[in-house]
Design a protein around this nucleic acid. Structure first.
Length: 125
DNA sequence: AGCCTGACTTTGT
DNA sequence: GACAAAGCCAGGC
């Protein structure tokens, strides 16, 4: 049997249409209304091998993905709306959160600890 | 094919 | 406790 060359395509269980973004979008969409999650939590759910930065990057594409992804429910580990600058207008993120009964003070989510939604736990499979 | 970037996180000083 | 640096991986050019 001829030796197979190792390549990224050899990854098993990984459809061609697979996109890191798509996975992230799917998870983010599952965030219950009124709850929030963090980039790191999502990244960890996909596998510790992934980095949280990519999650945030996936959000960047979230704006052009369908169905729409509630990127406003994803904040950093501090509960700070670090990505608000990427919304248009930036105040949109805070506005959406407040609309879901989430209190935001100075770009920080109050009670973040209680509102935190960890896919690795909530989606316990 | 290679280099740069990026909405984070963790660890060390 | 605050600040600095490194690690991380995939997409874009």
């Amino acid at each position: 049997m001829p030796k197979k060359k190792s390549s990224a395509n050899d990854l098993p269980s990984r459809p061609k249409e697979y996109s890191f973004f798509k996975d992230v979008h799917e998870i983010v969409r599952q965030i219950p209304k009124g709850r929030v999650s963090s980039y790191g939590a999502i990244a960890r759910y996909l596998g510790t091998g992934l980095s949280a930065r990519m999650v945030g990057w996936a959000m960047n594409a979230a704006h052009q993905v369908q169905p729409p992804v509630p990127a406003h429910r994803v904040v950093n580990r501090n509960g700070m709306l670090t990505g608000k600058a990427h919304f248009s207008p930036p105040s949109l993120m805070e506005a959406l959160l407040k609309k879901e009964k989430i209190i935001v003070k100075e770009d920080k989510i109050l009670g973040f600890d209680e509102l935190f939604w960890d896919p690795a736990i909530e989606l316990t499979l």
